[in-house]
């Protein structure tokens, strides 16, 4: 698969930044979108210093730019559609604070789900017109089963998994050069997870970025757990009966 240019939405997230760095050498043009322009600038300078040919950045706020066609904006910047789109933005709310707070919960869903699916819709339209491209979205192992202290976040990610499963089926039938990559990292040490008291088996953002870059280079399509053994862990977690899960405190 061709992978010269990539659009990364949520490019200042630790996993996205690590992925971009790992793509250097494969990918020469980066379009970075994120909310904080100062941080975006730091990431852009880093990629440029490390040898990227072109790094363009644009402001994007998942909460307010839900309807914006960022893919079309990218096309305007580059003169062509990007070969791949990586959607990486999300918030991990402090669960106790939002369980009873509808406005806050709405905001989480807006950022994690609505804006991502809106972006996917734009990607879908543009990519189907061209007939090739990779759509990669960062979901989470959390999406596989709601836990007592993160079920809103889990639900917001589960919607992505289901949407992408369907999109993958649609594309596999008619567009052999279109790929859908659902990336499901386990615990990763990043600013997003800094508040979590316990993170068993936590991975480093750098390693996760390398794995994602490898999947993109391979043109992989499907649900991928990172590291891979989370697939085994989550298979077990999914089939445990509720009554047993209730006994587990974690």
């Amino acid at each position: 698969m061709k992978l010269d240019s990539v659009l990364i939405v949520g490019a200042t997230s630790a996993i996205a930044a690590a992925t971009a760095r790992a793509l250097l050498g494969t990918c020469s043009t980066f379009v970075l979108a994120a909310r904080n322009s100062e941080r975006l600038n730091i990431i852009a300078k880093d990629l440029r210093s490390r040898g990227a040919d072109a790094v363009l950045s644009m402001p994007y706020d998942a909460l307010h730019d839900t309807d914006r066609d960022v893919v079309a904006d990218t096309q305007q910047l580059l003169g062509t559609l990007p070969d791949a789109v990586l959607i990486a933005h999300a918030v991990l709310p402090e669960h106790d604070a939002i369980v009873h707070d509808a406005a806050n919960a709405h905001q989480v869903l807006e950022i994690n789900t609505v804006s991502v699916l809106a972006l996917c819709t734009h990607v879908c339209r543009h990519f189907e017109q061209r007939g090739s491209g990779i759509l990669a979205v960062i979901s989470s192992v959390a999406a596989d089963r709601g836990r007592r202290n993160n079920f809103l976040y889990a639900a917001s990610k589960a919607a992505l998994d289901v949407y992408l499963d369907g999109l993958r089926l649609r594309w596999s039938a008619h567009w052999p050069l279109l790929r859908v990559l659902t990336i499901k990292p386990g615990y990763v040490r990043t600013p997003m997870t800094a508040q979590l008291a316990s993170m068993p088996l936590a991975a480093r953002a750098d390693d996760v970025g390398h794995s994602i870059a490898q999947l993109l280079r391979r043109g992989a399509s499907g649900r991928y757990y990172i590291p891979w053994w989370w697939r085994v862990v989550m298979t077990v977690v999914r089939i445990l009966p509720d009554r047993l899960v209730m006994l587990i405190r974690h």
Binding site: A14, I42, I43, K45, D46, S49, R50, P191, A205
Partner: peptide
């Protein structure tokens, strides 16, 4: 260690 970006080379 998370602050490991290159500012200028």
């Amino acid at each position: 260690t998370p602050c490991d970006r290159i500012r200028r080379f």
